[in-house]
Amino acid sequence: MSDFFTVSVLVATLASGIRLATPYLLAALGETIGQRSGVLNLGVDGVMLLGAFFAHWTALETGNLWLAVVVGLFTGLVMGVVYAIITVYFKAEQGISGIGIFLFGLGFSDLMFEVKVGTPKFTTQLPPVEIPLLSDIPRVGEALFSHSLLTYTAFLLVPAVAWLLHRTTFGMNIRAVGENPQAADSLGVSVNAVRVKTILIGNTMAGLAGAALVLEAKVFQPNLTQGLGFIAVALVYFGAWRSPFVMAGALLYGLVQATVIQWKVLGIISRQFSDIAAMAPAVLTVVALIVLAGRVQAPRALTKPFERH
């Protein structure tokens, strides 16, 4: 265990945890905005897969990683349009619709990969951006301030989302629509318009999360996300629909994953307990959700389609 508590290993673990947390955070922040307006999207994982595939394909074809990021965003936006039509205009049951979106994303990204790429192919990686001065801080600078621009973006979006939800008229409308859509409607707020916008934002961020994941790994495989999008949805509950707590959950999840890896590498976790230890992040999330159950209030109109009475 003493091997773990060396500066170099702790720094490497911290940096690894931040990298792992980035796609969770991007997806969970988008889902937070959607859920605050009363829309649950269980299709996040599928949207991430589509964003990841199309970003990867773009990177392979053009070599332009930033165009790949834009394509990932746009893919999410398109899926947002689809999901908005299904849930807002056709008022389909959100849980089932989301699973449908997930299955579509899983299957379509797999099919597109087989047809257009076929075999694992590497792209280049988004280069780390070292923040002047801060990245020069011994040890800590390397862990905290030497990441890709998408990682910084994810963490900068935390206060941005908090500001959006609590300091803007649009944010107030989002919360009103998520809590009491009838009252919001009676005050002249277009419930459907607000929900469409939050769905578009949320799905676009899920597409970006997929792009971040694939550009960090440099390679796409069918089902690349491995259920990451569902963890992101759980992190919204974990974070009680507040972006700083969602960030805390994403960081915790990523850091536990990174710590387990380091402990395995260092032999702190013996091989007999290897697979059990791999479950640690998920178990931790479930335990946290059990502890939080009943103590936090979900948006009252969550999952409920809006009907004007």
């Binding site: 690894s16 792992l20 390679v219 089902n223 491995q226 990451l228 994953q257 990174a258 290897s274 230890a277």
Partner: peptide
């Protein structure tokens, strides 16, 4: 290191990074 997954590419990448750091 057994990552506990046959398909988690990101976890495999981070495991490799940890090995190299070690």
């Amino acid at each position: 290191v057994y990552t506990g997954s046959f398909g988690d590419v990101a976890l495999a990448a981070e495991t490799a990074t940890a090995h190299i750091a070690n």
